[in-house]
Design a protein around this nucleic acid. Sequence first.
DNA 1: TCGAAAATGGAACATACGGTTCATTTTATT
DNA 2: AATAAAATGAACCGTATGTTCCATTTTCGA
Lengths: 292, 292
Amino acid sequence: MDNMADTASEALPRDFEALRALILDRRQSLPKRIAQVAAYALDNPDEIAFGTAASIASSAGVQPSTLIRFAQHLGYDGFTSLQQVFRERLRERTTSYEERLTVVRGEGDDDASNRRIVDGFLAAASKSIDVMSRNLDDETLDRAIDLLNGAETIYILARRRSYPVASYIAYALGKLGVRSQLIESASGLSPEIISFATSKDAVIAISFSPYASATVEEARVLSANGVPVVAITDSAFSPLAQFAKVWFEVAEADFGGFRSLAATMALAMGLTVGVAELRRGRKGKKSANSKG
Amino acid sequence: MDNMADTASEALPRDFEALRALILDRRQSLPKRIAQVAAYALDNPDEIAFGTAASIASSAGVQPSTLIRFAQHLGYDGFTSLQQVFRERLRERTTSYEERLTVVRGEGDDDASNRRIVDGFLAAASKSIDVMSRNLDDETLDRAIDLLNGAETIYILARRRSYPVASYIAYALGKLGVRSQLIESASGLSPEIISFATSKDAVIAISFSPYASATVEEARVLSANGVPVVAITDSAFSPLAQFAKVWFEVAEADFGGFRSLAATMALAMGLTVGVAELRRGRKGKKSANSKG
DNA sequence: TCGAAAATGGAACATACGGTTCATTTTATT
DNA sequence: AATAAAATGAACCGTATGTTCCATTTTCGA
């Protein structure tokens, strides 16, 4: 009773993240069964949101009364008010874009068609991000960044649709103090620039079907010259995948024939900043992060 | 009883989308109060998921018993089983990126730090898209596209961080057969190119704080020469907003000092494709709305 | 206009729910 | 080892919930 008085003085978490932090903070000081509930709650928040005290208790392997004690330990006056927080969490999640889109499609056929177009691109971007978030392989990423970290100059190879990504990488690397060279067609100097690259350098090549022949050819030459290639492409059958030491398969959703660049952009920024981080501070091995 | 027997032969929707389709299908044949509930349910699915029969009925302006009748009309044996579908819908939504991020941060502090960086950019992109989806104004969008539709040549103005967007717009407009001119610093010919623009043309100018002086200056000159400007920027106080006939405020989330481009990209593609659609087929005025 | 059938409102009902209480077990302290 | 304090389990209780039932109103066809 008294030991929960001081905690009641702090405002009770009304949102899930704060509650989560509170639970993790108290984890050590909770009684065994209560801690068991706490762990279950953080692992199965949806169950807490929808289940009944009895069903949750059964799933968590405790008595229903323990749930109430758990809530009271945290300062809530009962299980119900704790449950509200878990429900709010689900409420606040914004509607997914897929869902929103189908809604939009169903209504007004003619008007707001411009809005529908933008929504389409937003949905494509969102989906692409979602897919990448699930499919990206940590180890591939680490290898790519290690490889790029060792390079004196990073050459960036991309044409047409992929070019915006390349220009963003070049911009970011420049801001981060990493030497880089963007290969673009306009200057007409691509062959000369490429001939400077050595095995001490590295290449980021970006190309999606239908693959720009210039990008493929240049990647081939560079690879043959011993310059390691990191490729971002859309398929294992991509010509780029053959020449690459490390390659990422990125599945971008499309809308109206134009594929999103959102996932590729995020990956590109990840590579860029990852290299920059390695070079200052996190040098070599990754370690010594203080806390979360 | 009998008229719902044949519907019971079809499997009952267990997921929300199927339920939604079923309701829309039956909409016409439902009694007035039941239809009222049906409309409320589709408009406030979260309320159905979390509320009690009494609270929902009150919000929808009907008796609790009507809710049960509604569920039974659809073939469910009661309100509770219908509610399950609305709850499943919330359960199935994939975890949001914000949430996923905090989880990642909490666990393994040392390893997978590269992954954390990419996740950060994915989260920033996702958030930006989310915000745009909520804040984008349909009327502004329509005005911008109408304005661009009237242009002989579309000039695209952007430097530094915004340049990737500009290059993508130029690429897309080219593919769609819309005449455009990308203004870039490299050529050193910006002033000459700009001097060709007339009031029959239009400009898309993109700049975020800290605003590239070249972009601002060129937008000023073009605007003074009577060339209408569509601006994409980050604040009402942006210098670009002053010169623009139409301007969009885009709030991009950032990670590690680098702001996302995801929302800006989607908007840019929307403008681009919107104009192209207007020019072929949907030509000129938007009208002829058939229904609501 | 009349009558039957469907729809609706509202009260009554059974029960499943969260919360409380108390006996028992476990833990900590001296 | 003895005792006090905390934690736990399990039965109990009041209430709020979903559901059912019935009287009334509305709708539709003859």
